[in-house]
């Protein structure tokens, strides 16, 4: 009886896969290439309502409208760049998951490399310092003193044992 019940619930999972509920409408594309472009655009554009989702993944009303807009523009024969320009003109660079390379985004694009460079400098400096620390030379007197101290230390330890 229990197995039946489990099978009953499992059948739901098989019959209604999650994709059936996701926000992706069924669009008829006039060519396979257009469908590819559509998928690419919808994955690259950010949904402004949910911010950490792209248009493809978001279920918000705005995302649905914008997906429709992308679809209609593609069907009208607009190019990829034209659609991206259309979105940027209205919502700003923020709609792009991959921000353009321009003065305001220099820090964003180059920052990691600057940090890497600084890190390499710091590591190099540390290594150099370490090597210098090893090359301390002792004169004769100092060597004798050091030996004495070390021996005394060893004797102490022996006595304790």
């Amino acid at each position: 009886m229990k197995t039946f019940r489990i099978l009953y619930f499992l059948s739901f999972i098989v019959l209604f896969p999650a994709t059936a509920f996701s926000g992706v409408e069924i669009n008829e594309f006039s060519s396979a290439e257009q469908e590819r472009e559509y998928k690419k655009l919808v994955n690259e554009l950010r949904c402004l309502v949910c911010q950490n989702q792209n248009l493809a993944d978001s279920n918000s009303e705005l995302a649905q409208d914008l997906r429709k807009e992308v679809y209609q523009m593609l069907e009208k024969g607009n190019s990829n760049d034209e659609i991206i320009d259309f979105m940027v003109a209205r919502y700003g660079d923020f709609v792009l998951y991959k921000p353009p390379f321009k003065p305001v985004t220099f820090l964003l694009w180059l920052g990691p490399f600057v940090l890497l460079f600084l890190a390499v400098l710091v590591v190099a400096y540390m290594i150099k310092n370490n090597q210098q620390a090893e090359v301390v030379t002792l004169d004769k007197d100092e060597k004798l003193r050091a030996e004495k101290l070390l021996n005394a230390d060893a004797e102490n330890r022996n006595n304790e044992e």
Binding site: L48, V49, E61, L62, D65, L66, R90, Y91
Partner: peptide, 11 residues
Amino acid sequence: GRAGIDWGVYA
């Protein structure tokens, strides 16, 4: 909401 898109309305 088509005019809204032209005005960049999102919230």
